[in-house]
């Protein structure tokens, strides 16, 4: 389930990025690449596990769903930290100048 949730997050973030492209004020390319990297790695993990161990390709349990949601939240957190550190809209500078 975490694989499906992360893949969905990757697809949605890519669509939002494409809708706003070529402008990327919110650095959404970072978010989509973070999710795509994870999706690709889990895809390999799932395929190898399926070929060697068999069983269900997707693990559909409550635990796997919660893990998927947590992974998406961590991805958003990483993206937000990068966005605030790089500050492409120069928000912090403008806010600090206004307060002076």
């Amino acid at each position: 389930m975490f694989f499906i949730i992360t893949a969905l997050a990757a697809i949605i973030s890519t669509i939002i990025w494409y809708k706003n492209a070529p402008e990327d004020k919110y650095m959404l390319n970072n978010l989509s690449l973070i999710y795509w990297g994870t999706t690709l790695m889990w895809f390999v993990d799932h395929v190898i596990a399926y070929l060697t161990e068999g069983g269900a390709f997707f693990e559909i349990t409550l635990d796997a769903t919660l893990l998927g949601i947590t992974v998406v939240l961590l991805g958003l957190l990483v993206w937000l930290i990068i966005l605030l550190v790089k500050d492409p809209k120069d928000v912090f500078n403008k806010v600090l100048q206004l307060k002076r």
């Binding site: 795509w36 994870t38 889990w42 893990l67 992974v71 961590l74 991805g75 990483v78």
Partner: peptide, 20 residues
């Protein structure tokens, strides 16, 4: 930088899964 983001993104989120 694309490869870098793909790899680091995957590594950080996979590390969470392993921690989980």
């Amino acid at each position: 930088s694309w490869l870098n983001k793909l790899l680091w993104g995957g590594v950080v989120l996979l590390a969470l899964e392993h921690l989980w």
